[in-house]
């Protein structure tokens, strides 16, 4: 499981990629929590578009992040879950904890590339942490 983090205007978006099972969930939650504590976002976006498999471990991941975000009055948004993942989330009634949104792919792509350009401009000379398997977009705080 890979994860890319983008922080912009108080929103931390995590782009998840790959299979989300018990083992992957354990690993990824440490990384997400690290970013949350570092960035202190108001909104946490979890993008599932590129998640190919998820079992109830993924539900634990969402529920745990919801708790952590709620402690500081923050919110969780689930973005672009494919149908098989939406089905698992539906069982747990996740929509009561987090909003599920589908971003218009074309629009997002344009927005994202524009955003990224701006971010890159803004980030010049700033710390740009990127570990293995991680693309870390950094924005002026």
């Amino acid at each position: 499981m890979n994860a890319a983090f983008v922080f912009c205007n108080g929103k931390l978006t995590v782009y998840l990629k790959g299979e989300l099972d018990h083992h992957a969930a354990k690993e990824i939650r440490t990384r997400i929590d690290g970013e949350i504590l570092r960035r202190k976002p108001e909104i946490l976006g979890l993008d599932f578009q590129k998640v190919t498999f998820m079992d109830s471990s993924g539900l634990g991941l969402v529920m745990g992040r919801y708790k952590l975000m709620a402690e500081s009055g923050g919110k969780v948004v689930i973005e672009n879950p494919p149908s098989h993942i939406k089905k698992v989330m539906h069982i747990a009634g996740i929509s009561k904890l987090a909003t599920i949104v589908f971003t218009d792919k074309n629009k997002t792509d344009i927005k994202k590339s524009k955003k990224e350009e701006q971010e890159n401009e803004a980030c010049k000379g700033q710390d740009n942490k990127s570990d293995e398997n991680t693309v870390s977009g950094v924005v002026a705080e």
């Binding site: 969930a25 109830s56 634990g60 991941l61 698992v88 069982i91 747990a92």
Partner: peptide
């Protein structure tokens, strides 16, 4: 440990 407690629920569904 973070677990949803929904393993059997998912299997049954």
């Amino acid at each position: 440990e973070e677990r949803a407690g929904l393993g059997f629920t998912v299997m049954e569904s």
